[in-house]
Amino acid sequence: MARWGMVIDLDRCTGCQACVIACKAENNVPAVGAKEAVRGRIISWMQVLTEVEDHDHPGEQMRFVPRPCLQCDDPPCTKVCPVYATYRNPEGIVAQIYARCIGCRFCMAACPYNAKYFNWHRYQKEGPGQNPDVSVRPKGVVEKCTFCHHRLQHARERALAEGREVAPGEYVPACAEACPARAIIFGDLSDPGSEVSRLAQSRRAFRLLEELGTKPKVIYLTEGEGRG
């Protein structure tokens, strides 16, 4: 069984936000409006965190850290869900079942990466221009990056019809597809020959807040200092 993972090469990332926009369009992530934004309610499954390197000369050198849901192998968020609306599925994707979610937001509090978001209102209705493969979230549920698992549903549907396994490269999330710098590489971590597996073994590899023991499957690459 596959174990889906992602490698993000911070030395390649230019902070262009293409992944952020691609993610929003793909997953019907709502724009919450200015009033809600001021209250800190912006929803952005993929977010480019910025870090000023040289505090004496701010703005001269920036570091960018694209942050989707890190799809932890030992996720703190799923352990606190009282209703099994979020759990780690057999292929390692941390699922979020909106229909089941009761909106208690324990998982948001538990996530050390702030990767989960709450729908304080019904931010949008179903309509044309949305991706029909992703349901529009109602008011009162938590949402987050799902590694675009609807794309896996389609890839598997095709593979089943053709009597084969999902081929490498057939299932890729929108952010990885959109990255012009090829900083985001996606694939099966259980396949030692895959590009993600090889990159994840690199001496440049590190994980965010590794010391917490969450075992993220989004692995970052960078040369030199300032890791983690």
């Binding site: 759990y87 994707i93 079942i97 909106y98 089941r100 799902t146």
Partner: peptide
């Protein structure tokens, strides 16, 4: 029977 197989 994984929730993620059917739900999206």
């Amino acid at each position: 029977t994984d929730c993620n197989a059917c739900h999206r």
